[in-house]
Simulated assay, not measured.
Amino acid sequence: MLQSAYYKFIEAPILVRIFGIAVFFIVSFGTAVHFIEPKTFPTIFEGIWWAVVTASTVGFGDYAPKTTAGRLLGIGLIFAGAGFLSAYFINLAAVAVTSQNSLREGKAVYTNKNHLIIVGWNERTKEIIDHLQAMPFSRHIVLIDDSLRANPYSEKTVHFIQGAPYRDEILKKANLKDAAIALITSDQNKNEMHADMNSILSLVAMKGSNHTLHCIVEILTNDQVINAERAGADEVIETNKHASSVMLNSLHQEGASKSLKQLLNPLNGGHLKSMEPLEEWNNTTFGELAVLLLQERTLLIGIQRAEETMINPPLSIEIKTSDKLLVIKH
């Protein structure tokens, strides 16, 4: 029994061990002084009170031993108990500093749930995090990056993890199994082909660890889109293709890029969403439903039917319950 308790004690964290030894000395010396000088210390509690005050070097002076034996006991308490108490507070401060440094340097484990994981630090990531911070609803963000050496944000907003996103120990630190959604961005320090290969590798690692996690991956080259889908991507963002489309629209219509930016900016009150039609909307025409949804400040812009997406279809086309409605919703 004693041996088991001893092994548990030596295996405990150093703060627990130091604090336990300090408490042991305080209780022992406080009890001893009560028996040595029962008139000065009528109860064991008053002896322990004196031991706490003495060991902490506060020295209120309300209790003080009067005999030689009592004073020798006090000297022993100062040498033993005060030393352990000082060591406890020094180690406590060191642990606090180490914990803060671990958070800042990306070494600490994330323990909360339903968080957003973003892979890669770049200008796009910064824009996303800044927009998410400005939105009325908040979801805690875990940022995984191998190039950063310190968290670019406050630890209250973004939990940073330093390391490669395809390594199991890094994904465990990010608490991937309890995450709600993941966004994998392209590595700005690699060429397009290598960046896509790195993104797909991260996607495979994430889906392998949590196959139900909704993963959005940024792909730069058209050839790798199919590989990202094969790897299990729930959504593929073709950055170069989207940017080319915006540029092409600007060539045909000046100012189109500004209009599109305002349209897609969530901070302006609009969110591009996909929604399921209600049963009562079955066989309703696109034009009729568009007018109906406008009353709820929802702009119907298209329909997704099977693998086909129709933007601004004919007003006479009928809505089916199997369709998905593309809307801009406040």
Score class of each variant (00 low, 15 high):
Gln3Tyr: 00
Ser4Tyr: 06
Pro13Ala: 15
Ile18Glu: 04
Ile21Ala: 10
Val23Cys: 13
Phe24Gly: 03
Ile26Ala: 03
Ser28Ile: 12
Gly30Glu: 13
Ala32Gln: 06
Pro42Trp: 03
Ile48Phe: 05
Ala51Tyr: 01
Val52Asn: 00
Val52Lys: 05
Thr54Cys: 02
Thr57Ile: 11
Val58Asp: 01
Asp62Glu: 15
Pro65Cys: 00
Thr68Ala: 10
Arg71Phe: 12
Ile78Tyr: 05
Ala80Gly: 03
Ala82Met: 05
Ala87Phe: 14
Ala87Met: 12
Thr98Leu: 00
Thr98Glu: 12
Gln100Tyr: 05
Gln100Cys: 00
Glu105Tyr: 14
Asn112Leu: 07
Lys113Val: 15
Val119Ile: 15
Glu123Trp: 04
Glu123Thr: 15
Arg124Phe: 13
Arg124Asn: 15
Lys126Trp: 00
Glu127Trp: 01
Asp130Lys: 14
Gln133Ala: 02
Met135Cys: 04
Pro136Val: 12
Val142Thr: 11
Ile144Cys: 06
Ala150Lys: 07
Ser154Lys: 10
Tyr166Trp: 13
Glu169Lys: 07
Ala174Ser: 14
Ala174His: 12
Gln188Val: 15
Asn189Thr: 15
Leu201His: 02
Val204Asn: 06
Met206Gly: 08
Met206Ser: 07
Gly208Arg: 08
Ser209Ala: 07
Ser209His: 13
Asn210Gly: 03
Asn210His: 02
Val217Gln: 04
Val217Phe: 09
Glu218Ile: 02
Glu218Phe: 03
Leu220Ile: 10
Thr221Asp: 11
Asp223Lys: 10
Asn227Tyr: 09
Glu229Leu: 12
Asp234Tyr: 07
Val246Arg: 01
Val246Leu: 14
Val246Tyr: 09
Leu248Met: 10
Leu248Tyr: 12
Ser250Tyr: 08
His252Cys: 05
His252Val: 04
Lys258Ile: 13
Leu263Thr: 13
Asn265Ala: 07
Gly270Asp: 11
His271Thr: 10
Met275Leu: 11
Met275Asn: 06
Met275Lys: 08
Glu279Asp: 15
Glu280Met: 04
Glu280His: 09
Asn283Ser: 15
Thr285Asp: 05
Glu288Pro: 00
Leu289Cys: 13
Leu292Pro: 03
Leu292Met: 09
Leu292His: 15
Leu292Ile: 14
Leu300Gln: 09
Ala306Ile: 07
Ala306His: 09
Glu307Trp: 10
Glu308His: 04
Ile317Arg: 04
Thr321Gln: 10
Thr321Pro: 02
Ser322Met: 09
Ile328Val: 14
Ile328Trp: 01
